[in-house]
Nucleic acid binder design. Structure first.
Lengths: 153, 153
DNA sequence: CTTATTTCGTAAGGTAACCTTACTAAATGG
DNA sequence: CCATTTAGTAAGGTTACCTTACGAAATAAG
């Protein structure tokens, strides 16, 4: 069998890269000993950057199902890292906030992220990095947009 | 809390991108209706590109544990897509080959890969794509190298 | 040769990241 | 004021992995 499409293997390369990056992030997270899983760390990071959101909105920007987020928040709340505060404008809703205890954990997550970045960009020349990061952001936007469209009923 | 490290959020961007790509690939695979999971499709692809390898070697280049590969091969063999042939030089070992039935499946996987690539690169200008792909390959190599070093006892 | 060690594949069982379906309580729109 | 929608959640499933342990065959050591 010959190549059915040009550049097919390039996409497989990207799929492989995605696997490797996720695994490397998980490993780095274990190394800095936060006691958090990748999903929990990602959630903490998003709450840090977007405090006071409702769960549904938070799930939305993280692109996970609300039910997936519930699990992460349960763990993080049990660990005392986030609070679910009642929304004064809607008794059903809860607003997610960090607790002060989250600070040192965020610092460790930052270390893990730094490690992954350093390893991934190790061989990339300085003057290509900014361009690479712009291109990656563009890719993410395209994929997000597609996913968002798929969500609408 | 202020940014503990510069560019930390860029790494989170890459982690997010990895998630999105994996999910997009899984969705695309469902769309082309192969009946395969992402891991199985990835395995089939690798066997296509590297036929006649022993399981241990195949697991090695795919960067999964041998035991993880066993599961994929079990499914693929049950579906009649690969054969485990005895290695004439070592009675313990098995050489993995595609069956003719794999051809149409590979074509569908190719379609799925093509879809993901098209979506991911949608907004990337033509003349940046080659450079992007080179940079991605470089990133993958760095991560692989790191992972390989970690495997040694 | 024959014991000791390594290697090949595998059985069993675990963890994490998700998802789907179905429900309860509160808000809202006719 | 009743019907529908919305916010969060309980329960349970799937996939992708991993770790540990093991039997059989190959290879190294004495």
């Amino acid at each position: 069998m010959s190549l059915p499409y040009p550049n097919v293997s390039v996409t497989m390369l990207v799929v492989d890269l995605a696997r490797l990056l996720r695994r490397r992030f998980e490993a780095a997270l274990t190394e800095v000993d936060t006691g958090l899983t990748a999903g929990e760390a990602r959630t903490l990071f998003y709450v840090w950057r977007n405090p006071g959101l409702r769960q549904a909105m938070l799930a939305d920007i993280m692109f996970v199902e609300p039910m997936t987020l519930v699990g992460y928040l349960d763990s993080l709340e049990k660990a005392g890292l986030v609070k679910r505060c009642p929304d004064p404008t809607d008794k059903r809703a809860k607003l997610i906030e960090l607790t002060p205890a989250a600070d040192p954990l965020l610092e460790r997550i930052g270390e893990a992220l730094h490690t992954v970045r350093a390893k991934a960009l190790e061989e990339i020349p300085e003057d290509s990095r900014e361009m690479l990061e712009t291109l990656l952001q563009t890719m993410k936007d395209s994929l997000l947009q597609e996913a968002a469209r798929g969500k609408q009923k």
